[in-house]
């Protein structure tokens, strides 16, 4: 598998962000009460923002993202790619799913960067990986502050 051009790489990334939007939408569909829905709506808006940002970068032709990786706090990363939180999902379930999703993107981009032959493409993936690591850290931090306060 290879991505030949910068445009293709970003197209792939935008696709992933849009998939995330769909993921949260799907969850929102099974949400049982208002507070869950509004939390998911927040995350949807966030992912939409990411997608829009990548669209703009694609149009400009440059990626303005730092390649430095945010710290992995080690929290909230157990959900497998296939797992879906249950209908009665708590804030814990939602955050765990979100953090795991960002972690998987980070790992995926990291792998793609290593596999990329073209230095420009590699750099683009590295920058995308850096961005995803920051998203992961954001959810992990939220998890530590709001869920696992006593852990």
């Amino acid at each position: 598998m290879g991505y030949a051009t910068f445009g293709e790489v970003l197209e792939f990334a935008i696709g992933r962000e849009n998939a995330a939007v769909d993921f949260y939408r799907e969850l929102s569909g099974i949400a049982a009460f208002a507070a869950q829905k509004s939390t998911l709506a927040e995350f949807i808006a966030m992912e939409r923002g990411h997608a829009a940002m990548l669209e703009a970068m694609k149009a400009r032709g440059t990626v303005k993202l730092s390649a430095s990786t945010a710290v992995d706090l080690g929290a909230a990363r157990r959900v497998e790619a296939t797992d879906r939180p249950p209908a009665g999902m708590t804030f814990q379930d939602i955050l765990t799913a979100a953090a795991s999703k960002e972690a998987r993107s980070f790992e995926l981009y990291g792998r793609l960067a290593r596999e990329a032959g073209d230095p420009g493409i590699r750099e683009t993936f590295e920058r995308l990986a850096g961005e995803e690591s920051r998203h992961r850290a954001y959810f992990q931090d939220l998890y530590e502050r709001e869920v696992a306060r006593d852990n």
């Binding site: 509004s38 869920v147 696992a148 306060r149």
Partner: peptide, 18 residues
């Protein structure tokens, strides 16, 4: 390890922003 809220009693119709 931590506790969470129980907010199912707030409905969308109540209009309380969460």
């Amino acid at each position: 390890i931590g506790q969470g809220p129980e907010l199912s009693y707030i409905t969308e119709a109540d209009g309380v922003e969460v």
